[in-house]
């Protein structure tokens, strides 16, 4: 992941629920109470990059070192979503949960051990991948029927499976793009053979 990778930046900006462990003065405006200290134990959604910093850094006081915040799994990776993914990976529109679901999940797994989440996500990704490839091939007409000249263009997305394709998250969109480019190049070559 490069420094300027826009997807990585956007993933870092995803909010995750955090619980403050200390009372912090003058930060009450974060919890809609301007002018008052932020109480210990209040729950606030913080962007991932900030939450990570605060959770890892300790207060450095004389008493036992305590981190500023503890964080939970975001709603996109909540138990309900995981259960739904276990039941049928194809039926869940991942984009509605988070446009950067896999990136978020891998980041969360780096921070805390989530064995089960990893297994479920791998299954989800692989199952959805073959579905994505199927749609990517279908888009823009099949090889059998001779259509208009712009048949192989990228604009042909639509028709059956539109619902599924709308639910793709960013990793899956990239995958769809790659699969589609491959299928399109194949089709173009197939048609060009006859011309030469």
């Amino acid at each position: 992941m490069s420094y300027y990778d826009i997807d990585s930046i956007l993933t870092d900006a995803e909010k995750i629920p955090c619980t403050f462990q200390l009372e912090i003065p003058e930060l009450g405006y974060l919890d809609n109470q301007p002018g008052q200290p932020l109480k210990a134990g209040s729950k606030i959604a913080l962007p991932l990059w900030l939450a990570e910093m605060l959770a890892i850094a300790n207060t450095g006081g004389d008493d036992q070192a305590k981190s500023f915040v503890t964080f939970d799994l975001p709603a996109a990776l909540s138990n309900e979503v995981v259960q739904a993914l276990k039941a049928d990976p194809r039926a869940v529109p991942l984009r509605d949960q988070s446009p950067h679901l896999y990136g978020l999940a891998t980041h969360m797994m780096d921070l805390s051990e989530e064995q089960e989440l990893g297994v479920v996500l791998r299954k989800t990704f692989v199952t959805r991948a073959s579905e994505i490839a199927l749609h990517a091939r279908k888009v823009g007409g099949t090889g059998h029927n001779k259509g208009t000249a712009d048949e192989g263009s990228n604009l042909g997305v639509g028709g059956a499976g539109e619902e599924f394709l709308r639910g793709l998250e960013e990793w899956e969109r990239k995958l769809f793009r790659k699969a589609h480019d491959g299928a399109k190049a194949g089709k173009e070559w197939m048609e060009n053979v006859k011309k030469r």
Binding site: F125, A133, K174, L175, K178, A179, G182, G186
Partner: peptide
């Protein structure tokens, strides 16, 4: 291979 390379590598 040329057709599926991008997809397979992506997966």
């Amino acid at each position: 291979l040329a057709e599926s390379r991008g997809f397979v590598l992506g997966v």
